[in-house]
Amino acid sequence: MYQTVFLDAASMGDADLSPLQADNIALTCFNATTPAQVLNRLQQADIAIVNKVVLDATTLAALPRLKLICLAATGANNIDLAGAQQHGIAVCNVRGYADTAVPQQVFALLLQLTNKVQQYQNAVRAGRWSQSPHFCLLDYPVTELAGKTMLIVGYGALGQATAKLAQAFGMQVLLSEQPDASICRAGRLPFFTALAQADVVSLHCPLTAGTERLFNARAFAAMKPGALLINTARGGLIDETALLQALQQGTLAGAALDVLTEEPPPPAHPLVLADLPQLIITPHMAWASAEARQRMVQQLAANVQAFAGGQLRNALWPQH
C-alpha cells in the first residue's frame, strides 16, 4: 500500500479525483498546504502529488520515505530536481492535457485585445448604443488578425497548437531561436529579428535560468510598434516593471497575461492596480477547462500506477 498525499488538491477545482484511488493506494488530500505544513504532511508519504507547492532541497532531504513526486503540472520550477536526484526521489509530470485549453485562452485574450468585446459590452450596458445617432457604435477600433504575424516563443505542444489556430485565422507564424544562440535552427529567426517582425508574441516556453525575465526592457524596445504580448506560460518570463513601463509609454500596444511572477499576486501588485484598458490579466486559468483538469487526473493516476508497477511514466528524473 503506497501512502499518497496530494498537498494542494483544491487547485484541481471540481475535477473528479476518484481515478487516483485504488486498492494499492492510500490517498490523503489537502485542499492547500503552507510551507510550514509540508514536512509534517509528507513525513509518512511514499508518493507526493503537488501542483504548485514548493519542494526544495532542504525539504526533500528531510523526507527519507518519499520515493515519487507526481507533478499536477508540466512545469517543474517548484521542485528542486537536483535535490530529488540526490535523494533518489523520482519526479514525473503531466503532459499534453491542456493542448486545447491553453491555445483557446490565447485567442480569447488576443481577440479581446483586438475586438474590444468587453468594452463594447460595457458601452451597451451603459446605454451608449441606444443613444447613438447611427445603427452601430464604433468607439473602439477593431483590428483583424488575418495577415498579421504571430511569433511563437517556445514551440512545444502548446506552441504548436497555438500556431495552428493562428494559421486558421490567416496569420503568418514565426519561430525564434534562443537569444544567446550562435546558430539558428532551420525554420527559426534570430530572437531580436523575430521580435521586430511580430505583430503578436505568444509565450509558451518553460521558466528556467535562461528564460527568466526574457522579456525585459531590451526585448520590449526591439518589438514592432503596435505589437501585442500574450503570456500563458510562466509569469517569471517577463520583467513586470519593464512591461508596465512599455504599456504606459506606448512601446507595446497591449498585453494579456494569464500568469504573474507572484501567484496569487498581492493586492497592491502594480500590474493588478494599473488602470490600463490595453492590459488584461486572468488568474492562471488558461489550463483549467473542465476537460483538461480531468485529463490531468487521468495522467496523474497513470503515473502513480506505473510507479506502483515498477515503472516510471513521464519521468523528469530519472531519465532513461
Rank of each mutant, 00 (worst) to 15 (best):
I79S: 05
D80I: 01
A84N: 04
Q86Y: 07
Q86W: 07
H87K: 06
G88C: 07
G88W: 06
C92K: 05
C92I: 09
N93E: 10
V94Q: 09
V94G: 07
G96Y: 03
Y97N: 10
Y97I: 04
Y97A: 10
Q104M: 10
Q105V: 05
V106Y: 07
V106D: 12
L109M: 08
L113M: 10
N115W: 06
V117L: 12
Q118F: 02
Q118G: 05
Q119R: 03
Q119D: 02
Q119V: 00
Q121P: 05
N122R: 14
A123P: 03
V124W: 07
R125P: 06
R125L: 12
A126H: 13
A126F: 14
A126V: 12
A126D: 13
F135P: 02
D139R: 01
D139I: 00
Y140P: 00
P141G: 03
P141H: 01
P141D: 07
P141I: 00
P141Y: 00
V142S: 05
T143I: 14
T143A: 13
E144L: 15
L145Y: 08
L145P: 08
G147C: 05
T149D: 13
T149E: 14
M150W: 02
M150K: 02
M150Y: 04
L151S: 08
L151E: 13
I152N: 00
G156S: 10
L158D: 03
Q160A: 14
A161V: 09
A163Y: 00
K164R: 12
K164P: 00
K164Y: 04
L165T: 12
L165V: 15
A166S: 01
Q167L: 14
A168S: 12
A168V: 14
F169T: 08
F169L: 08
F169Y: 09
M171H: 06
V173D: 08
V173A: 14
L175S: 13
E177K: 05
E177G: 10
E177V: 08
P179T: 10
A181F: 09
S182H: 15
I183Y: 15
